[in-house]
């Protein structure tokens, strides 16, 4: 135990030597500032629509004029529609002709969309027209929810799980490399090779350093953005397991390189791949298999559940993290023992 404490103290001093603490405090201030003061609680993600009602009754125009919200604009002529579409090439145009009993729509797309997505637009318009015509379309199916419907979370706060995953949890991955190359340069790894410390203590001490830093960093970020209403115990557990996993992966990668220059390409590649699940977080209907197997995908979802509970189980994510940590530790032990501890011998 004493050997571990001494090693941990030494590692902690090295970790904090390169102004890491200032880097983290600076980044924390930035993150909190963004989430609390700069990011809006809501922003429009829908494609802009320009609606031109060419019909005699102009029912559609009346409906849209009265409705609130939505990213649409009513235009009064074909010319105005064309001008609007030209001005905003990311928008779509909707032209309504005929009558409410014989409605005809022309959807003007400025971007190619699949036939399936075209049919989804048709289905929404069918629903709209059925409502306007007062057609009683008794729902021929029932709707059930596996759990109570979740409350709407402000958009700025939904970024907290993403920032926790891609800023806080990966801290060990990024800095363990820096840390190990420094040890190699200073020759302290050689000294350790002949000391009685062993591979196990070496890895555990490094991982513990980043767990402590990650916990302080992550909890400060959550407390300063979401307050104290969060289940801090479960959150801490996820941060500990997440930081440990990324630090272990970081050691596995860093062992194979001697300096930051050689590591940079592979390290940045791993970090770039790791960030891909952020797309699925923002667009939940897009979740190809290769994204779902990246650990950050499950971690982000579990963090979201802990920060904004809906009753969903985080056990699968915890299992993944525990198994991942065990596997990563095993591989880490092997590569450190067979490669790092034999370097220069």
């Amino acid at each position: 135990m004493k050997a571990f404490i001494n090693l941990f103290k030494k590692d902690m001093v090295i970790a904090l030597r390169n102004a890491l603490i200032w880097v983290l405090i600076g980044t924390l201030v930035l993150l909190v500032g963004f989430v609390r003061f700069l990011m809006p609680e809501d922003f429009q993600q829908n494609q802009s629509q320009y609606i031109y009602d060419k019909s005699q009754e102009q029912v559609l125009q009346k409906v849209f004029t009265q409705s609130e919200g939505g990213n649409f604009t009513i235009v009064n002529s074909q010319k105005a529609l064309e001008a609007s579409l030209e001005k905003n090439p990311y928008s779509i145009g909707v032209v309504f002709e005929g009558s409410i009993d014989q409605p005809q729509f022309s959807i003007l797309h400025q971007k190619n969309i699949s036939e399936k997505n075209q049919r989804i637009i048709n289905a929404s318009l069918e629903k709209l027209i059925a409502g306007l015509r007062g057609i009683e379309r008794t729902q021929q199916y029932q709707v059930e929810f596996l759990r109570q419907q979740a409350k709407v979370i402000p958009k700025n706060l939904t970024s907290v799980p993403v920032l926790l995953t891609f800023e806080v949890l990966i801290i060990g991955f990024l800095f363990i490399a820096v840390f190990m190359f420094q040890e190699k340069n200073e020759g302290s790894i050689r000294a350790y090779q002949i000391s009685p410390g062993g591979v196990f203590l070496y890895i555990i001490s490094k991982v513990m350093v980043f767990i402590v830093i990650g916990l302080l960093y992550g909890l400060s970020f959550v407390l300063l953005t979401l307050g104290t209403s969060v289940n801090l115990l479960t959150l801490s557990l996820l941060i500990v397991l997440g930081v440990a996993l990324y630090t272990l992966i970081g050691i596995i990668v860093a062992v194979f390189f001697n300096n930051i220059s050689d590591w940079f390409f592979v390290g940045m590649g791993v970090l770039t791949l790791n960030i891909l699940p952020a797309i699925s977080y923002g667009l939940p209907t897009f979740a190809p298999k290769f994204i779902t197997i990246i650990p950050s995908y499950s971690i982000m979802s579990a963090l979201r559940e802990v920060l904004f509970p809906t009753g969903k189980s985080i056990v699968p994510a915890l299992n993944m993290l525990i198994i991942g940590n065990i596997l990563a530790f095993g591989i880490c032990y092997l590569v450190v023992k067979r490669r790092l501890m034999k370097e220069g011998q």
Partner: peptide, 25 residues
């Protein structure tokens, strides 16, 4: 829900024409 509504009702009340007019931005 709109999709399932349409699938279960089957009946089509509207005529829709989709046109691609843009630059695919």
């Amino acid at each position: 829900k709109s999709i399932l509504d349409q699938v279960t009702f089957g009946e089509e009340l509207i005529t829709v024409q989709h046109q691609f007019i843009g630059t695919d931005k």
